[in-house]
């Protein structure tokens, strides 16, 4: 049962909310309680742009349960324009045609569900940035 965990993570998954340290201005995604850089405990919420470039990625061919219908699919680390790197699934593309440095943008997509009658989990995913 992933319901409570998914619900707790919804600010990140639904709105890409990150924490920006009020002292050293570093951005953390997901947000933190204490800044690992400067030890400050005050943060402002910032919404990430979702736009960036592909830093590195791997192609999942043998997918875990709940994801088998999507295989093969890519999971990558994306360097956002804000300067931070975040992990995400890359959809709407042939994973074998991806290259590091590709421009990506985020979309709201279905991640998986807990079977036919269970909860549906949504999240941000990355897609190639084609201006649409």
């Amino acid at each position: 049962m992933n319901v409570p965990k998914h619900w707790r993570e919804s600010p990140q998954r639904y709105r890409m909310e990150a924490g920006k340290c009020r002292k050293c201005e570093r951005i953390f995604f997901p947000g933190r309680l204490v800044c690992p850089e400067c030890g400050h405990t005050g943060f402002d919420m910032v919404k990430l742009s979702g736009k960036g470039k592909l830093h590195t990625f791997t192609v999942i061919r043998t997918a875990p349960s709940g994801f088998t219908d999507f295989a093969p699919y890519a999971v990558g680390i994306v360097e956002l324009d804000e300067g931070i790197r975040i992990l995400g699934q890359i959809t709407d593309c042939d994973p074998d045609s991806l290259q590091t440095g590709d421009r990506l943008t985020s979309k709201f997509r279905r991640m998986n569900d807990e079977g036919k009658t269970g909860m549906i989990m949504y999240s941000y995913k990355f897609v190639p940035d084609n201006g649409i």
């Binding site: 959809t91 709407d92 979309k107 709201f108 997509r109 279905r110 991640m111 549906i120 949504y122 995913k125």
Partner: peptide
């Protein structure tokens, strides 16, 4: 729709 698109995802992306 892609396998990871449904009414809710299309609605959110249009609404944004």
């Amino acid at each position: 729709p892609a396998p990871d698109e449904d009414c809710a995802t299309l609605a959110v992306n249009a609404a944004r």
